[in-house]
């Protein structure tokens, strides 16, 4: 399967990464190279094989449903590019 310029731009958009036309064009052969190479996995017979979910058997732990942390608002906001009135600030999303 071959990837074209339009597909690269769609992947970029899904990835929320803006790319210029020149950047997208440079990515077309790169992606085709890499994806062409990984496609060899299709030749492996996986009949009856379950996809791996955990490398080391480990049971999911439960803990008491209780608050164990919190009250650290200022720490949470300390690295925000823009924080106002105790909240993260973002550009207007509703017109």
């Amino acid at each position: 399967m071959s990837i074209d310029l339009q597909t690269v731009k769609k992947i970029a958009s899904l990835s929320r990464i803006s790319v210029t036309d020149a950047e997208a064009e440079a990515m077309v052969p790169e992606f085709n190279n890499i994806l062409g190479w990984v496609e060899q996995l299709g030749e492996v017979d996986v009949t009856g094989v379950e996809p791996m979910t955990a490398v080391i058997p480990n049971h999911q732990r439960l803990r008491v449903d209780a608050v164990t942390d919190g009250n650290v608002r200022d720490k949470v906001l300390a690295n925000a590019p823009q924080a106002e009135h105790g909240f993260f600030a973002v550009p207007k999303v509703i017109e």
């Binding site: 803006s18 994806l35 990984v38």
Partner: peptide, 19 residues
């Protein structure tokens, strides 16, 4: 994300998004 990630990181994010 365009400004903050280098080319290899973008490449892997996009390959991952595709697959």
């Amino acid at each position: 994300r365009a400004a903050g990630f280098g080319p290899e990181v973008k490449r892997r994010i996009m390959i991952g998004t595709y697959v």
